[in-house]
Amino acid sequence: MDVLNRLQQFLGLVGRHTPNRTSGAEHTGSALCIEPSDIHKTTDYPTASNGLGDVYKCIWNHGASSDEVAVKSPRLPTMSDRESLRINKDLDREILIWAALEHQYVLPLYGTVEGFGPFRALVSPWMLNGTLNSYLKHAHETLSLMDRLQLLKQITEGLQYLHDRDVIHGDLTNNNVLVAADGSPRLADFGISNIMVQSNPTFSYHTGAIRWVAPELLDPPQDQPIPRATKSSDIYALGGIMLQVLYGKQPYWWLKSATHVISAKFKHAEPIDSSIKIQPNHLNFMRRCWSKEKEGRPSVEEVIDYLQEALSNETLSA
């Protein structure tokens, strides 16, 4: 189904993402708008922040129900009123696409709310285990290889769902994969980085994300001055997710500054060094994901096939 059809079906789909569509929320031409008075911060300060926005843990009171939600307020450069209007239209597009998506490993969108900044904030379920990065810090050693392969397969299934609908994530990092209470992942924040790039061509990926960014997005061809994320650049980032889930290391973990990471990418240095031992089959596949030539990277279907085979082999050897 193409994007246009998804947008046309949005009003019929968004209700399925909402725990209980009752009073306090109404549809507009852009998204399910939640009344600001129904959203209550649990703290005055963001629970988390990254280069794309601030996240507040809140309680959403709707009808007789209350839900813990995450409210993400996009953080974009200072701009004129005209630019802000254009960005809001771009956000409308991404919000509509997100609201029309429904998959167990994609974070659902409940709606939008005003009052958290100059742009509409995005309301989604609160994920008890936080980001993949924080989850792995305390759970990696307790997860078996089977658990880690299964987690990777679930993440990839979420990405496959997006790619099958021509939705590019564009900012797939360890902080944009969230983990639910049962340990299963939810892909979040897709599409927002492309708005950042379009709103400010001088935008450089925030320090945490630079490790995951495909090299062609840092050094686009002259005939394409504004880089755009692709399915192939998502696969490059997925290779970094594989590295961290399987081996507990972020890409270029030994480099502390974004400048050094960028320099390493321009020199075509791999995101790994010799300080850890990686299984040869894992290493070979991750290297395919990190191929300098984007045409050499596997499709999301190939990644799933590889992970399914790895899971089957692990089952046989158990």
Results as ranks from 00 to 15, higher is better:
Lys277Tyr: 12
His140Lys: 06
Asp234Val: 03
Ser317Glu: 11
Gly115Ile: 08
Leu162Gln: 10
Ser232Ala: 15
Ile235Met: 15
Phe285Val: 10
Asn129Phe: 03
Trp126Ala: 07
Ile241Lys: 01
Pro215His: 04
Gln8Tyr: 11
Thr142Leu: 15
Ile59Lys: 13
Gly183Ala: 07
Arg288Tyr: 04
Ser23Arg: 12
Leu246Arg: 11
Leu96Gln: 14
Val245Trp: 12
Arg288His: 07
Arg82Ile: 11
Ala310Leu: 14
Arg165Thr: 08
Met79Ser: 15
Ile39Asn: 07
Gly12Val: 10
Gly12Phe: 12
Pro271Arg: 09
Lys137Pro: 00
His138Glu: 09
Val197Tyr: 01
Tyr247Leu: 07
Tyr45Arg: 12
Thr173Ile: 03
Ser204His: 12
Ser193Ala: 15
Lys137Asp: 08
Gln224Thr: 14
Tyr306Asp: 00
Arg75Val: 00
Asp171Val: 03
Val197Ala: 06
Ile241Glu: 01
Thr47Ser: 12
Tyr252Gly: 05
Leu217Asp: 01
Arg75Tyr: 00
Arg21Tyr: 13
Arg165Gly: 11
Ser232His: 08
Leu311Gln: 13
His268Gln: 13
Ser134Asn: 03
Thr202Pro: 01
Asn88Val: 03
Leu307Asn: 00
Ala318Phe: 00
Asp223His: 13
Lys231Leu: 11
Ala209Cys: 01
Lys292Pro: 02
Ala237Trp: 01
Ser134Gln: 02
Asn5Thr: 15
Val3Cys: 12
Tyr56Asp: 04
Leu316Cys: 11
His282Ala: 06
Tyr247Cys: 06
Glu293His: 05
Phe266Pro: 00
Ile210His: 00
Asp54Met: 09
Val69Glu: 09
Phe285Asp: 08
Leu122Ser: 09
Pro298His: 10
Tyr236Leu: 02
Val113Asp: 07
Lys72Arg: 14
